[in-house]
């Protein structure tokens, strides 16, 4: 098993090197003449006003929140799916119950209007 992961590990170390090479080559051959006007932030071509860090809507947080909960639940279900051959019917139904409890959360978020983009 560790042999499988050796490959992944080597890949993990080497994979960033290819794109990093593509960033190093321009360093050597491309012109570099930065000036204060050139490195201004580009916002529709007019001068930037105010702070970059604008106030975000709480909506974004709600989406990430629902995603987090669903993600954790689905990760729980993957071992259940792999062991499917060894499971009797009622064990499968327990998995279904697990999903249904989760659906209640989705229904709540839906009814509350938290999933609307207003």
């Amino acid at each position: 098993m560790l042999n499988d992961w050796l490959f992944i590990g080597v890949f993990l170390i080497l994979a960033p090197i290819f794109p990093a090479l593509a960033l190093v080559i321009p360093r050597l051959i491309a012109p570099r003449k930065p000036n204060s006007l050139k490195s201004q932030t580009y916002e529709c071509g007019i001068e930037t006003v105010g702070d970059t860090w604008v106030q975000f809507r709480v909506q974004y947080y709600i989406f990430a929140l629902v995603f987090l909960i669903f993600d954790v639940e689905m990760v729980f279900l993957f071992p259940w799916a792999v062991a499917f051959d060894q499971l009797p019917l009622f064990a499968v139904l327990e998995g279904v119950l697990f999903i249904l409890i989760l659906v209640a959360g989705l229904v709540y978020a839906w009814r509350k209007g938290a999933l609307e983009w207003t």
């Binding site: 994979a15 794109p19 960033l23 491309a30 490195s39 201004q40």
Partner: peptide, 28 residues
């Protein structure tokens, strides 16, 4: 490759350069 590479004012240099590497690296 031969285009000038511009670093915008106030950018966080390391994170800024790391992001494109991650974009291609994860796909690889």
């Amino acid at each position: 490759l031969i285009k000038e590479d511009i670093l915008p004012i106030g950018a966080d240099k390391i994170v800024y350069n790391l992001a494109p590497i991650m974009a291609l690296g994860t796909v690889l």
